[in-house]
């Protein structure tokens, strides 16, 4: 399974709509980095509104992809993390400290614009 990555101006938008298995998560990581490289995008929003579970593996993949994108010069914002998912992550001991987040897609785009203009 492949997660679609949409391009909008110089941003990339991803909405994760499926229950992520490990392979799909790793494939997504690779696809996103390639797409950043090819498109020269400077900002990425990954919307997690439909994701109802983030375990330690998926959390690691998401945290890594934020760092990797950063190295390449693109800012990533995670949006729409569900309350139940946020509580579960904290129980797991995963804090995603350096990962920019926003309430929803709209806020995410605003945050990106602010970060990129600074």
């Amino acid at each position: 399974m492949r997660i679609p990555i949409l391009k909008l101006h110089n941003y990339l938008l991803i909405s994760i709509q499926i229950d992520l298995d490990d392979k799909t998560a790793i494939q997504f990581q690779e696809d996103l980095l390639n797409k950043i490289h090819k498109s020269g995008s400077t900002g990425v929003v990954i919307d997690l509104t439909s994701v109802d579970i983030i375990d330690s593996f998926i959390a690691k993949v998401l945290g890594d992809v934020v760092m990797m994108s950063d190295l390449m010069g693109a800012k990533v914002v995670l949006t729409g993390i569900q309350p139940a998912v946020a509580m579960t992550l904290i129980d797991l001991g995963i804090h995603l400290h350096n990962v920019p987040t926003a309430l929803d897609l709209e806020q995410g785009l605003i945050k990106l614009r602010q970060e990129l203009e600074e």
Binding site: D22, D52, I53, I54, D55, S56, F57, Q82, P83, A84, V85, M87, T88, D91, L92
Partner: peptide, 15 residues
């Protein structure tokens, strides 16, 4: 919330 906790725990154990 507990459903998410339980599903996450299972995911960790299964992995």
């Amino acid at each position: 919330v507990d459903q998410a906790r339980i599903a996450t725990a299972i995911s960790e154990l299964a992995r």
